[in-house]
Design a binder for these strands. Sequence first.
DNA 1: TCCACAGTTCGATTCACACCGAAGCAAGAT
DNA 2: ATCTTGCTTCGGTGTGAATCGAACTGTGGA
Lengths: 227, 227
Amino acid sequence: MEPDITIIAALIGDPSRSRMLLALMSGKALTATELALEADITAQTASGHLAKLVESQLLIVRKQGRHKYFQLNGQDVAQLIEQLMNLSVSINPAAIATGPADQDLRDSRICYDHLAGSLGVSLYDSLIQEGHLLGHGENTELTESGKEFFARLGVNFDDWHKSKRPLCKACLDWSERRNHLAGKLGNWIIEDVFSKKWAVKDLDSRIVRFSPAGLEAFCKKYKIART
Amino acid sequence: MEPDITIIAALIGDPSRSRMLLALMSGKALTATELALEADITAQTASGHLAKLVESQLLIVRKQGRHKYFQLNGQDVAQLIEQLMNLSVSINPAAIATGPADQDLRDSRICYDHLAGSLGVSLYDSLIQEGHLLGHGENTELTESGKEFFARLGVNFDDWHKSKRPLCKACLDWSERRNHLAGKLGNWIIEDVFSKKWAVKDLDSRIVRFSPAGLEAFCKKYKIART
DNA sequence: TCCACAGTTCGATTCACACCGAAGCAAGAT
DNA sequence: ATCTTGCTTCGGTGTGAATCGAACTGTGGA
């Protein structure tokens, strides 16, 4: 009887599958063919892999017309992958390529459903600085001042109490090795950014591309010091 | 360019290796043979696995005599495995392994050929406290006062100079996360305990079982404060 | 109705790697 | 010195799994 962690780790421990999972870290739901392209394998092979990932409940799938949309099965899975990246970075720091495309990824990217990268870290720092957030390790708490601040921005906290997903959560950022904001509030912030058209998701990567004006507005809104 | 997380996940995703890693999650440092037994494979196969785990820096190894002690490379690795266990439980709640309450093992056990566990740590602390021992990291030195103290107990240091084995050495205790005394002196102490019948070795484990009177005598001899 | 496209199933191939037996090496023990 | 023990190296075997070509199902559009 082999431990269950073996099965999960073995699923991630295949190059094609881990490429798919990384692609899904953008939070977007992708079709089977898109994932096959991402992993650089044929559709047949991808189909087999995806079936396994769904069966093991690492992914969930939604059928829409003749497409099948896959996404990570919740925050737990995303967090596990993030943790794996953390460890691989701390073991092999040279592995972080320093290409120009990579720089954008480090600046601001999607981590499942919230903002990561140096901008995400700056946001977190600023919220702490302003007294809106209290951070103790992995757990984070919104202060009264923070509740007021976000209520003024249009957040309706009452609606959120129904969900069991934590309001705030710190997520360790692999490129910065510091916390950024996850949880429902982290998700709200990035959705707010998109709805205001301050930034758009890059088509086939996890990069979040801010417009110059959007970046300025964002930094002003959250009192982030520009570098 | 395959992502690094693939490599790490693949390492964990082998039944034999994950059994070893789980065994090491107890915090204990284990030898190659112990791990081979744990994984139910031959020593040769285990040796190959362990080499990979060390090369990839998931494990660290310490050579002590002809034994090789393996342990998890820090908290990061332990945390990743913990995370994997969490996910597998949330996916498959049926498999809940209840860890054996090895309190006796934590209290006092054999570590290669000397005393470990909370009692071993207390002994080390007391020797430092009394000024018999000087500890700088892994290296430890017997003071003049210490030499006198042990000479009075019957140790003949002259005979020991022939051996190249270090007289004193600190050995990291993983249940306690603190040093205990290894080296020839550490061995002498535990042999002394056995010869005085203050304690006996448990048959199939590394537990050292003190008699009530033996424990009292031991603590008095080394001025260990009883808790 | 026919075609195009998304995804799956089947069969065959190929290859990596976990595994063990045997032998070798190193470090204590006797 | 000789034996025992812990670990490693080498060579050969076998199995599992990833892969793709080809053919099939099902959906949507022309």
